[in-house]
């Protein structure tokens, strides 16, 4: 498909060159990585036990985190989108803080709260004998902490773009706020909610800093894919490349899924 000449004139080089540089900056490292993969040795690398353990752990914990994000994030997003209350702006700002927080700092913060001696962690362990750090649940907790803001912001956007007049229509028909939420608001915002969930899932999948700070690196328990890649990288370059390739494929698959299913359709 040829594009017609732009009636406003050609794009200026002053803009085209930086744009091309930006593209190269994003594409070249990935291409270099793919090129450097030891393809003949790849099948053996992919069969390694640590990889399968880490991949499985990453997929399950990310999925669990996504569900928790939905369960907690959807109500919060709804509150921010639909209820007018004092401090709404402040709450929204608060929710977005983890979005800009370095993940390592998130890990330290989680430690302070949920560690064995943490403000919540200490009483929790005293009461139940359970503590989050260095467990699968700790991984999920770290994932939720970093992903929840993404989910809340995305879902809030989806709820905002759904016409509130439908909620009004539901109310005039005798629907309670809960019925309206369940039968009108959520179904109408569903594509955006699903997109938010996938976004949160992808964020969890790539989570490294908070997870390793909070949970350490125990194979089979808290060693997720990013952690495994980081650790492997120090000993075996080829193995690290193979692992990275897996992550790249998974990430691109998510992107394609998002594009086709939700991002393009309004």
């Amino acid at each position: 498909m040829r594009t017609a000449p732009d009636p406003l004139g050609r794009p200026p080089a002053l803009l085209l060159v930086p744009a091309a540089l930006a593209t190269a900056l994003l594409v070249v490292p990935l291409a270099a990585m793919v090129a450097a993969v030891d393809w003949p040795g790849l099948p053996a690398q992919l069969r390694s036990e640590p990889l399968r353990d880490a991949l499985w752990l990453s997929l399950t914990t990310s999925t669990a985190a996504m569900l928790v994000c939905l369960l907690l994030g959807l109500p919060l997003a709804w509150l921010l989108a639909r209820v007018d209350f004092a401090g709404r702006g402040a709450l929204r700002a608060l929710v977005t803080v983890p979005l800009v927080l370095p993940p390592v700092v998130a890990g330290v913060a989680l430690r302070t709260a949920f560690g064995r001696t943490g403000v919540l962690g200490a009483p929790l362990e005293e009461l139940t004998g359970f503590s989050f750090p260095f467990t699968v649940w700790g991984v999920v907790l770290a994932h939720v902490f970093v992903s929840l803001p993404f989910v809340v912001i995305a879902v809030e956007g989806a709820l905002r773009s759904a016409n509130p007049e439908y909620d009004a229509a539901a109310a005039t028909l005798g629907a309670s706020r809960w019925t309206g939420f369940r039968r009108v608001t959520v179904p109408l915002a569903l594509p955006g909610i699903l997109a938010g969930m996938v976004l949160g899932w992808a964020r969890s999948l790539g989570e490294f800093g908070a997870t390793i700070t909070f949970n350490g690196n125990y194979p089979g328990r808290t060693q997720t894919m990013p952690t495994l890649i980081y650790v492997t990288r120090q000993a075996d370059q080829d193995a690290a490349l193979a692992l990275s390739l897996v992550m790249l494929v998974v990430s691109v698959a998510i992107l394609v899924m998002l594009r086709d299913r939700w991002l393009v359709t309004p």
């Binding site: 007049e165 439908y166 009004a168 229509a169 539901a170 005798g174 309670s176 009108v184 109408l188």
Partner: peptide, 16 residues
């Protein structure tokens, strides 16, 4: 609103 038993037909219908 929900307890008013008032029927409202919107200009642009607002069918779900």
């Amino acid at each position: 609103a929900r307890d008013r038993h008032v029927g409202l037909v919107f200009q642009d219908q607002m069918l779900f």
